[in-house]
Nucleic acid binder design. Structure first.
Ligand code: MN
Ligand code: MN
Ligand code: ZN
Ligand code: ZN
Lengths: 135, 135
DNA sequence: CTGCTAATTAGCAATTGATGCGAATTGCGT
DNA sequence: ACGCAATTCGCATCAATTGCTAATTAGCAG
């Protein structure tokens, strides 16, 4: 995801308005590696801007995802997780606390056994217990 | 997943009853490689046994999953998919029709960049367009 | 600066997949 | 055949997310 300043330009150029709510979310998401859910972002946003609507959070997240600025990922943890890191990487998910960590993998593994399946991308999810929960 | 006959024994030994509804689902699931959703199984079951409840389908699927006879997998396609194949394998999911295919992968890829994360397992999901949808 | 207008906000209803609950039913060991 | 615990199944409920829309507002033109 680009910086709040760059996003401001990009939004205006697309005919989208840059509201205080959106600016707040730009800031909360930029460089965020915690893979937050909409709920978590709503809680964070509410601290800085009491009264902001969960609906607006969803709206802005969807807008950013549609623009390719972030990815929405479903790890089966109950709610979608949002990742401003759109570079190629993989994830490790804790079975206990649902924390999501970025993982660098050497290369994409090969697939065999399917004829005629046109692969667009491969996603690897490592599941286990994170360092925090291990104690 | 074991055969309906073996499951019948296993259920009785655990104190669980073998009802016609469960027998039907044993049969629908055994050797099934289509990774059906609860909805799909309910539709199939309803043909053979009109009046069967979706609730019962969920119940039995959860029982089987708890016994390790099948796995419930969330591919983010809207509903959980059930897989009676509990051997180590991976999946390819079609972006267009949500079909799920089994894939054999040489071996699990290595992970790096995380200290203290105890990996239990790794799941790979290939996404793209299946042979049927390519036409 | 002022006004216009299309985009946005935010509250609430609706949707979807799945589970909780409980009265009526039924498998199955004795 | 009996008895009782397990099961069924309809309905209410839940959680995450989206649809809808009246009121508000950003941003541009004059
Ligand atoms: Mn990430
Ligand atoms: Mn499978
Ligand atoms: Zn953890
Ligand atoms: Zn397809």
């Amino acid at each position: 995801m680009r910086s709040p300043a760059e996003l401001t330009q990009a939004f205006r150029q697309t005919g989208l308005k840059v509201t205080p709510q959106r600016q707040l979310l730009f800031g909360l998401l930029h460089g965020n590696t915690s893979h937050p859910s909409a709920d978590v972002l709503f809680a964070l946003a509410s601290e800085a801007m009491p009264g902001i609507s969960l609906r607006t959070v969803y709206q802005t997240l969807n807008d950013l995802a549609a623009m390719g600025e972030l990815q929405s990922i479903d790890f089966g943890t109950g709610s979608a997780r949002f990742d401003p890191n759109v570079t190629d990487h993989q994830h490790a998910v804790c079975n206990e606390c649902d924390a999501v960590h970025d993982v660098r993998v050497s290369r994409a593994p090969k697939m065999s056994g399917l004829e005629g399946f046109d692969i667009h991308d491969a996603h690897i999810v490592y599941r286990g217990i994170c360092a925090d929960c291990a104690s």
